[in-house]
Amino acid sequence: MSITLNNIGKRFGNFAALDNINLEIPEGELVALLGPSGCGKTTLLRIIAGLEQADRGQVLLNGSDVTDQPVKNRQIGFVFQHYALFRHMTVFDNIAFGLRVKPRKERPSETKIQEKVHALLNLVQLDWLADRFPDQLSGGQRQRIALARALAVEPSVLLLDEPFGALDASVRKDLRLWLRHLHHELNVTSIFVTHDQEEAMEVASQIVVLNHGKIEQKGSPSEIYDSPNNDFVSRFIGHTNVFQLEKDDSSWLAGAGIIIDDPKGIVAHVRPHNIQVEKPQDPANSPVYLKDWQHLGAIIRLELSKDGTNGKATTIFAEMPNEQFRELALQKGDRLSLHIKHAHWFN
């Protein structure tokens, strides 16, 4: 089911949680609502679900206006950050809940319910937990049960609020991939909220970046990463070095490969992997030296320090593959020259 949001606005007192949100989500997408905490992403998700009422604007599901429909009529599945499993029911009863509360005419027979619940338990690979209570499960298991419960009513839209937020790092990694595969299998339009840009890049087919209740950018992970719309998106997605053209040594920037005759803005954002590090011909003249480095597995992150004109040092991060770092055989304190391969300019 496609989702359309028209001019959604929501205020909490004087605080504008959402300001004029327009968004179109085609059927079958797996979309991440990404932003720092307090940016309104969860509020937006809850408005789509019908758990929260927008002050202004409309929510359309498959083209029909559901703005005034209560949550139970919207055919959505909602997965909560803290699972919200019914603690007095077994896993089986939790998953069967949505089927058992249906009006008598639509309610499947108890045998059908049995079949369906076991099919869902198999889907989330937890069939052996059917008779347990939620408090006997681990966080990752609970979240998968919560997902199975939401899927039981065959929702047309699946909404997940920080689904991995309360989990350990390793469990989170597994579940991300699993969610992506599950989405491929079911192909139900899904939106999940996250503040973790890595998670959004890894799982989503489309990312919507929110900040201060506004959409900053929408696009595929590569679009967002490779061509950020503005300063905020560039800083929020991945690491970035920020160079101010007015403040920083422009001649040095020119030497490093940034054309300053025709700058496209006053602030240059450079991803660490877009900085090429070399040993200089004339080490004495280079303002940059290697302060420290961190081993990140396949890549090495170099922490470089650049002497400023006013005696203040700035830190620049560069990244290079492990092998290249070994070839260069750098030592702490070595003078280096930089070549900037690509920069994003903002005003």
């Binding site: 679900a49 758990l51 209560p70 949550v71 139970k72 959505i76 599945g77 909602f78 909560f80 803290h82 919200a84 499993l85 019914f86 603690r87 007095h88 809940f97 949505g98 509360v101 249906k102 919560a146 419960r149 939401a150 039981a152 009513v153």
Partner: peptide, 25 residues
């Protein structure tokens, strides 16, 4: 309210939510 919201999102009515989720808790 999360459990109650979960019940509502699963299609339960207000009364069903009260008797099946709130009251047992």
């Amino acid at each position: 309210h999360e459990e109650e919201e979960a019940a509502l999102s699963l299609g339960a009515s207000g009364w069903q939510t009260f008797f099946k989720v709130t009251l047992p808790n």
